[in-house]
Design a protein around this nucleic acid. Structure first.
Lengths: 177, 177
DNA sequence: CGAAAATAGTTGCATATGAAACTAAGTCAA
DNA sequence: TTGACTTAGTTTCATATGCAACTATTTTCG
């Protein structure tokens, strides 16, 4: 997934040359009306509203908070792999978040007797206290951003988002080139 | 805006200590149901669908494409500041995107006779050809992601997104700490 | 069994990012 | 006019990111 921003090792399908196209069709493309642009602007606001809280209160970064959110809800220890699966974060990102959280005393790793390659992760008492402090605050941010919206509006919104995701997932064909 | 991820120079409102909270309230927080989490997953898919195209075809990165999108729609030359304003990107990001696009021959900078601090930017013929190639492809991706959705569903979706943004913008109070 | 393939997690590298500092140019007002 | 302030844009620096390569286990199967 996501192979964004890899400037020079791209293998351009057409050798990076623009098509010979001197006729100036003046394509009518307006960024401000472009759906993905609006999604980005929306996403940026949403994600900043959250990170303000955990960044301000505990200097945590998004990956750390997400890791904490998963561990906080779990009963026993979890493997890093499960966090990767459930957070949809890259495994490198999870690895580093875990490392940092361990350094800060927010989580503990124990050897996994069932599999010597992995560790079982869980929040320390301190980490759990942070979680118990943060989770309600972040739920409050969620409540705030959704205030004035009905259940149905929200579920419709999410349903549309899901349909869009499905549209993108089904077949990578026909998207140019 | 966005002061994400600044691990160690944060000034924690409470000195980074978790609250003394030994009572294990088992906050019911489920990441997968958390609205902002879903927004992120959605956003990631949307943005990846686009960047796949301009990254694959021209090795461009998001900031470059967005800069191009704005310049492509403009008639005369624009200042970088206008691109910043209209793209909602950081000015550093725009500065570097412009530099790279100039190096690649996609845009031209001329001195701005009206203001010696700034330059007027516009697409070169080559840049315009790329734009004319990419814009329809990206509009096709947009069409694809929205396929099967009615006008109204889309406008409702965007309206909800806007209301959420408004909810977040109005007053930074009451979000914890 | 034992070699090949798969998996968990880490690290190296190349690059993206943004805040803050900086330079240069313009504006404002005494 | 000239000094203070503002603005445009760039650079520096510290950090985030993700792919690919790596180590260390575990699984698979001939």
């Amino acid at each position: 997934m996501s192979k964004l921003n890899t400037p020079d090792n791209h293998v351009a399908a057409n050798g990076d040359r623009p098509p010979e196209n001197g006729d100036r069709q003046r394509t009518d493309f307006v960024l401000e009306k472009f759906f993905p642009y609006r999604v980005r602007v929306f996403y940026t606001d949403v994600t900043n509203a959250l990170s303000e809280v955990y960044q301000r209160d505990y200097g945590m970064m998004p990956a750390e908070w997400r890791t904490m959110a998963i561990l906080g809800a779990a009963s026993g220890g979890l493997q890093a792999t499960e966090i990767v699966a459930r957070s949809s974060m890259d495994k490198v990102v999870v690895s580093r978040a875990v490392k940092r959280m361990e350094e800060r005393g927010f989580l503990m790793r124990e050897a996994n007797s069932a599999d010597g390659r992995s560790f079982l992760l869980q929040l320390s008492d301190e980490g759990r206290a942070v979680y118990e402090d943060l989770a309600p605050k972040l739920l409050a941010v969620e409540r705030k951003m959704l205030q004035g919206l009905g259940e149905e509006e929200i579920s419709d919104f999410l349903a549309v988002a899901q349909r869009i995701r499905n549209n993108l997932a089904n077949s990578s064909e026909e998207n140019g080139s």
